[in-house]
Amino acid sequence: MLEISNLVKRYGSDAPVLKGLDLVVEGNTVVSVVGASGAGKSTMLRCINRLVEPTSGSIQLNGRELVNLRGANLRHARRKIGMVFQGFNLIDRLTVMENVLAGRLGYVSLYQAMTRKFPQTDIDRAFHLMDRVGIAHYANKRADELSGGERQRVGVVRALMQEPEILLADEPTASLDPKTSEQIMVLLQSLASELSLPVLINIHNVSQARTYTDRIVGLRNGQMIFDGTPGEFNQEALDAIYGGIEAPDETGGEEQPTEEAQTP
């Protein structure tokens, strides 16, 4: 169970990006976080695994406080938090297998990592997961030879190799074409139930959020303004989250959801 309470993040002396956020994720639910660019979605996700330092507040994963961890304790906590990135963040020059095994870096010794002598159980797990998402035949290919959808599968498998207690996905489909991004969403949804894993997904595409997730959380200006099931996510909620945002670079993101909202 993930419990975020009164989370505040302020960069320098600017206005805070997150203004006292509360969020509880239980069981193996898939939660999507929607909101315009700059609403604080990415910052919230990165506060959980401390790629971004929270200014104040509390984040507990299965009863363990994450905010004050340092050094080895922080690294131990991070092992249990898998993360999938918008840009896949693979190591291009390494093979798919090496990228996948990189998910075990928190568990193996430096010598094992350097010589690539990972324990057989890790290799078995890697092949099992790669088979599951359909990339096992690429094991010895270089990561940059794969297509976008395949690369994101590598990213997902790498995160799952950590044997995480929660999976964070930061815009996992934003760099993919519509069809591939739906496949990735289906994959995340089914993996969540197979591995009984809670998943937190930042997402721009509201219709995908509705279709593939159990719960939608809407952020605006660092505050949660919607929390409910996809069925409850109506035009009113959409306007509240995206409406009236005048920044010119956000009009593209704004139009799409309003169109979506009119169709059903």
Partner: peptide, 24 residues
């Protein structure tokens, strides 16, 4: 970005260098 991903796995600084920086 790969460096960030390696940090997120809970790898130590040396392992982040080894996987995130050295290949690049």
């Amino acid at each position: 970005r790969p460096v960030e991903a390696m940090e997120a796995t809970g790898a130590s600084r040396m392992k982040v260098v080894l996987f995130g920086i050295v290949p690049q």
